[in-house]
Simulated assay, not measured.
Amino acid sequence: MTFRYANGVPTSTENATADILKAAADPKVISFGGGLPAPELFPVEKMKAAADKVFDKYGQSVLQYAETLGYPELRKQIVKLMHDRDVETTFDNVGVVGGSQQAIDLVARMLINPGDVVITEDPTYLAAIDVFNSYGAKMVGVEMDEDGIKTDALAKTLKEYPEAKFIYTIPNFQNPTGRTMTVERRKELVKVADEAGVPVVEDDPYGAIRYAGEFLPSLKHFDKDDNVIYLSSFSKVLAPGMRMGWLVASKEFMAKFTIIKQNADLHSDNLTQYIIAQFLEDNDIYAHIKKITDVYEHRANLMLQLIDEKFPKNVHHSTPEGGMFIWVEVPGVHTEDLFKECIKHNVAFVPGSAFYANAGKDGTFRMNFSNMNDEQIKEGIDRMAKALKVVMPK
């Protein structure tokens, strides 16, 4: 049987995300690849208590079909979370989704026609690139520095592509670089986008996990014209297996989003929404997030210290203030050669080429520290240092 696949289906079966997960699943491999939260921090007992209470209180009704935009009590809780993030919004502006990954997909479905331009940071989240490509987008990357996307370069790009459908950005502890966009850049990005009449999709799955520096308002905070579509997730602060996130946008956008969401899956998992809402009602979410950030801060600092000690002196890395990732640049080394050598040493990372909208920068890779304990980090860095010695120019 020959299937006549849609244009959005990749012609190649190469799958960087699947390769990451496969490497992470091999017990012999210490994987700094996948962006996995630490499972020992999942609130298993408290979530079980919330689930028991949900079944006792709501019985059969929690297993029934539900509203497309989500369980009302959870949406009210999200409004409170957004207030704490310095964004004033309303119940009607909030939609619950199957993780922020679904929000990325549905927003792309709403805005992209084949051939449309999408502007991203370069590098950026590889699974977002895959989604945008699947809808036939023309990807245009804008260079970053340690302060985030270069807004002067963004302004030039928007003049070159005034028909661009949206700008995709991760301002907090960016994936893959771990960088944080400065307040000045945030204000300028919103201003530049408004002047060009191009929407901004702000992806903020890591923003709550800050362990250094000061809280910075989101792009949505500076949005006075309903030009920013804000996405976030419970995956990093509760558990990714629950597949629950949210979207905040204008009421006009949400009216159309409701139809697209309904077409996709009618509504997100009703039982999980009730359980999360109950958990938030019964527990201090910020005390739980503090436990996560304390552990991640320790692991990040340990990994950075060991990179500085054991990697060659010309190796550069980002220094994240939160989140889960460190970006590493090794001049003169082919990333694929290093990746293959690291696999021989039973250690893995994600090659940087997967994160670029256009041509990738060689000698770059992403490392995750959240899912490994101290001994694994120490041993994994030792293995990587040995692999680097093999592939570094003599």
Rank of each mutant, 00 (worst) to 15 (best):
N7W: 01
T17A: 15
D19H: 09
D19Y: 05
I30Q: 00
G35H: 14
P37L: 10
P39A: 15
P39G: 15
L41R: 09
L41S: 09
F42N: 10
A49P: 02
F55G: 00
K57M: 11
G59Y: 00
A66E: 14
G70T: 10
E73R: 13
Q77W: 01
I78Q: 03
R85P: 01
E88K: 09
G99Q: 07
D105F: 03
A108S: 12
N113M: 07
D116A: 08
V118M: 04
T120Q: 04
T120C: 12
E121A: 13
L126C: 11
I129C: 09
V131M: 03
F132I: 07
F132W: 13
N133M: 12
G141P: 09
E146V: 05
D147W: 07
K150F: 00
L158T: 07
K159S: 11
F173T: 08
N175I: 11
N175C: 08
T177W: 05
V190W: 07
E195W: 03
V198R: 04
P199G: 14
P199T: 11
D204Q: 14
P205F: 10
A208S: 08
S218T: 14
L219G: 11
N227W: 13
Y230N: 15
L238Y: 04
G245S: 10
W246Y: 15
A249Q: 12
M254A: 02
I260Y: 05
I260S: 06
A264D: 01
N270K: 07
Q273M: 08
D282C: 03
I285T: 13
I285V: 15
Y286Q: 13
A287C: 11
H288D: 13
D294A: 06
E297W: 04
E297S: 08
H298I: 07
L304I: 08
V315D: 08
V315G: 10
G322A: 04
M324P: 07
V330S: 03
G332A: 10
K340Q: 10
E341D: 02
C342Q: 00
A348Y: 04
V350N: 08
A354L: 09
G360F: 05
R366N: 07
N373F: 02
A387F: 02
K389D: 14
K389V: 14
K394F: 15
